[in-house]
Design a protein around this nucleic acid. Structure first.
Lengths: 193, 193
DNA sequence: CTCCAGTTTCAGTAAGTACTGAAAGAATGC
DNA sequence: GCATTCTTTCAGTACTTACTGAAACTGGAG
């Protein structure tokens, strides 16, 4: 149990409380932020917990600490593992499984970015291309393609496509490069401006 | 009315249908994407509509085109204006108001980025700093601050703070620079890697 | 095989969010 | 002043998403 583990350390009760308070504050805020970015609160909280305690926890630890049900823990932990930002961990001689967060924030960011790009940006980009195809000369004829309204819409679609392609390229730089990539990016940027 | 306006143009019915189909497809996808990023679907759809038709529309146009109520239109349009990505527009001799989207995608991105940074990242960063303060030597004493668990949590919080500070700086570059800033960023990046 | 510790699944429900429609409020013109 | 046209607000409701808890499942030990 986590309790037994806590006992191993020699934190005074006052310090232990302070530690927990600080962790809880972080967890709460992280959960709130997740929500506004389209990540469900509990999932973000579990992740924050695993990240901030910096030690593998089992499902019961998570349930107890965040006051959530077994079912919820199970599903959320699975989702976090699917994202790749949490790992399952077998301790030798232990029957139950433990979970730990990735350590490196930059790696986490890379994983999340890559996944969201794939899930949410790529389909939009594809749709925009399809919309443009529906309005190009080959499809509706040269005459029609010159109509004022068609022209306007075509321009807007083109503008959006260009934008998304560029942001895609930026993401591409982050993905795979992770920490080294990002810090390099930042160095370059801060110098360039 | 928008109908009268459409009549002014000489689109064949077939082309008009095709145009509308393409626009609707874009609007739908944009709405879906918005949802997954924590923006409500209708708001994203209204924005997509105003952007893609590239002509000012009045509230009734919006209601009719997206099949939403007057109340919903009113609130969503107000929110879009608050974000600054949609503008109110008076046509001379017209009683009702029209709405148009910003034209430049890069400007839109800047506005949204700035606002989300302010609303969602800054408070988190402040919280992390507060958590760190709760666990520093001055607050809990030198001895306690060296406890294993306290150390671990402190390291994690520090890692996250560093990350958020760097991403903040990147955002900072975009905000205000908008198009020129971003394209410059991209050029630099593509050269550097 | 059965038992048991641990995990997953999922129907039902609670909580939260978005939307409508009607009523109140503004602004314009007579 | 009143009538007309357009906009906003908000209580009530529909819809969506998240969560629980119990039952089903899994795999190791006896």
């Amino acid at each position: 149990m986590a309790v037994a583990e806590a006992d191993r350390t020699n934190l005074s009760p006052a310090v232990a409380t302070q530690l927990r308070t600080a962790q809880d504050l972080f967890i709460r805020r992280w959960g709130e932020m997740g929500q506004t970015w389209g990540i469900n609160r509990t999932m973000a909280e579990i992740h924050a917990l695993l990240y901030v305690v910096a030690e593998p926890l089992c499902m019961d630890d998570v349930m107890e600490r965040l006051h959530i049900s077994r079912g919820n823990s199970s599903m959320s932990l699975r989702a976090l593992c699917d994202w790749g930002i949490v790992r399952r961990l077998h301790k030798l001689g232990e029957r139950r499984e433990f979970f730990e967060s990735l350590t490196d924030v930059w790696d986490m960011f890379s994983l999340i970015t890559a996944e969201r790009k794939r899930r949410e940006m790529d389909p939009v980009l594809e749709t925009i291309r399809e919309c443009r195809r529906m309005l190009d000369e080959k499809t509706i004829g040269k005459q029609a393609a010159r109509g004022r309204e068609v022209q306007l819409t075509r321009e807007r679609l083109a503008g959006m496509e260009e934008f998304m392609e560029v942001t895609n390229k930026i993401f591409q730089q982050f993905i795979g490069n992770a920490r080294s990539g990002l810090t390099r990016v930042v160095r370059v940027l801060l110098k360039a401006f």
